[in-house]
Amino acid sequence: MKKLLLTLPLAALMIAGTTQGVQAEGRLTIYCSAQGDWCQKASETFGKKYDIKVSMTRNGSGSTYAKILAEKENPRGDVWYGGTLDPHSQAGVNGLLESYKSPNLDKIAEPYRNPAASKQNHSTGVYIGILGFSVNTDLLKDAKMEMPKCWSDLIKPEFKGKIQMASPQSSGTAYTALATFTQLYGEDKAFEYLTKLHQNIGQYTKSGSAPGKNAARGETMVGIGFLHDHGKEKGKGFPLELVAPCEGTGYEIGGLSIIKNARNMDNAKKFVDWALSKEGMEVAATVQSFQVPTNTEAAIPAEAIRPEDVNLIEYDFVKYGGEATRKALIGRWVEQVKPLER
């Protein structure tokens, strides 16, 4: 009798456990590299619309690339949503992604239809975001410092310990910064700059969107990252000023790709179609993510910083999305900059 009493609830729990576990029908697993709340909103909206059980995990695009690579033999994710294009590009070149031409492609602005290095429709651009930095104006005022306007301002000694940037090892955002400096200054000069910048960095965060949030909360005076992430914080009322640096700056194309041999291939395609639609693109603004959508029919949020308003460099997505360049740049940073004492 005792035994029965004990095993009954145990069995019930076990059944509860397995039903939440496996089964792969009407399911979709999204690896998301956009902002957390956007990822969630997109997953929910899509899941509800098509009655599909969506699982989602958020991670930086650098880490997500590494995860997809590690799971090559036994892919666990179906679709990779958001995050800088470069890691998407690299995954495409390395055969980790499925080619797919969505019927919605003709609504996407031409440069973003097939931007990845492989040129085989592995990835589509879903949004454009501009790299820059934002400054906590309260902290700036307290320290009686002048508003930095250029990348070169950030290496002034008075910013020592006051700047945050993500680590290029985990964050696509930080890699975009690395590639931007390289394209602005040439590689050697860029590393000279990064070495000086290193002296002023208080902390390298894991996630690319963290420096903006930390600048908003005053945990750091300056945060380097994508300005649309920072605009979101500003919109919440934090004392934040967004700066598109005077020398010119790089930008990101947010990638969207299907993982090769995805277990839920049909749903993955359905998701890509949806994410490229006007409806899918406009989800971002509902959670205050103010990127510029690539779908020409989708509304550009008023708060978004438009590419035509700032000094943009000709970002070479093919070269800097290539594995060799990416490995070399990150490797050089890890060897020459990261270990330096501050």
Partner: peptide, 22 residues
């Protein structure tokens, strides 16, 4: 051991903090 299908509360704390949602 967490994945897209298994999310645990204690790990969410770290994920939230990583992304700046302190």
């Amino acid at each position: 051991l967490v994945s897209a299908t298994v999310h645990l509360a204690a790990i969410e704390i770290i994920m939230l903090d990583n992304d700046g949602w302190t």
